[in-house]
Computed example of a mutant assay.
Amino acid sequence: MKNTFTLSLCVILLTLTSTFAQKKPIKLGVVGLTHGHVGWILNREAKEDVVMVGIVETNRDLAQRLSNKHGFPMEMVFNSMEEMIAAVKPDAVAGFGNIYDHLAIVETCAPKGIHVMVEKPLAVSLEHAKKMEVLAKKHQIHLLTNYETSWYPTNVKAYELLHKGTIGALRKVIVRDGHKGPKKIGVSAEFLNFLTDPKLNGGGAIMDFGCYGANLMTWIQQGKKPNSVTAVTQQLQPENNPKVDDDATIILTYDTAMAILEPSWNWPIGRKDMEIYGEKGAIYADNKHDLRLRISEGYSGYDEEIFKLGERDAPYDEPFALLASVIRGETILERYDPYSLENNMISMEILDAAVKSSKTGRTVQLKN
């Protein structure tokens, strides 16, 4: 009886210890401060899931400006990833520098078992992406790509309606993303510098906003690659974006459907919206919260249902909560989830083909 009691007590203590250990906050290192989206972590309210333990940024003036604005101590700013990792031993790293450096982050962190989340797109090129994929799989780390549109409840609702057959078989998707242009909307000098550098960003609007549509289509099509990719780019603001494109149209063809992606730095009003057309109706994800469903009636008539959607449930309401949940094993990403490596490898293949098509003036065929 005594032995049974002792065994039961040990099991309870081990369970409590395990639960406590799982709930320890994920120690997050931030690599780079030049990306405008870094405010998402610097402004994040203190929570028990993630704690920022270190920052890597060689531009001390930039670090000091953001320290003054957001209140983090300059003592937590390091000059290199190696220095930061040795000092604070992060569980994960979030990349908020230029896109070219994403590969170097994975090269440094993966062998040490440190998980990585980068801002979209995954990489500047398919070549970089393939190297990152090999490292992530070899060292068994999570490698996530954060897209703002992954949080949108309208996109999730549109996906659900489509796959329930509400509008019939898929025929066409139109995805529009962008704004007036980095310089016109007043991004920081550091952010503008890499966004308009073809090496550091992989291109202009075609990469910066074309990735959203590639990512969404890969999710919608559950990993099926397009048969072909055709892209045309223009430079409508040479005075602001002298080295890169600022407007693009990308056409993806599938066996029974087509997608048109319209990434641009020339939209008069900022937008991230999607239209999905089926045989029986259409879905309009107008923004993060507003969605319209139209079911065809006759030639041009339709029955319309309007949805006003609230925020998604945690941890899908913001990227850092999701990162922590994935690392802890509490959340298993569905195959081809917008954050997943499987999705973003295909997204990079689409972007790579789009860039090649725009430069050669030819359609690029993809192998499924």
Rank of each mutant, 00 (worst) to 15 (best):
L14Y: 14
A21H: 12
I26C: 06
L28N: 02
L28P: 01
V30D: 04
I41N: 04
I41H: 05
N43F: 10
R44V: 08
A46W: 12
A46L: 11
K47T: 11
M52L: 11
A63Y: 02
N68L: 15
N68D: 09
K69E: 11
M76T: 08
M84K: 01
D91H: 13
D91I: 05
D91E: 05
G95Q: 15
F96D: 00
I99N: 13
V106Y: 00
V118M: 02
V118N: 04
V124A: 06
L135V: 12
Q140S: 13
T145I: 10
V156W: 13
I167Y: 01
L170C: 07
H179R: 06
K183T: 09
G186Q: 05
S188F: 06
L192C: 10
L192Y: 12
L195N: 09
D197A: 09
K199C: 12
G203L: 01
G204W: 00
I206A: 07
F209D: 11
C211Y: 06
T218H: 02
W219A: 07
Q222H: 15
K225W: 01
N227R: 15
S228L: 03
E239T: 10
K243L: 10
K243F: 14
I251V: 15
L252V: 07
T253N: 10
A257Q: 01
A257Y: 00
P268N: 07
P268Y: 05
G270P: 13
G278K: 00
Y284R: 13
A314V: 13
D317K: 06
E318F: 07
E318H: 10
F320G: 01
R328W: 04
E330I: 08
D337K: 02
D337E: 14
M345R: 00
A353L: 03
S358D: 06
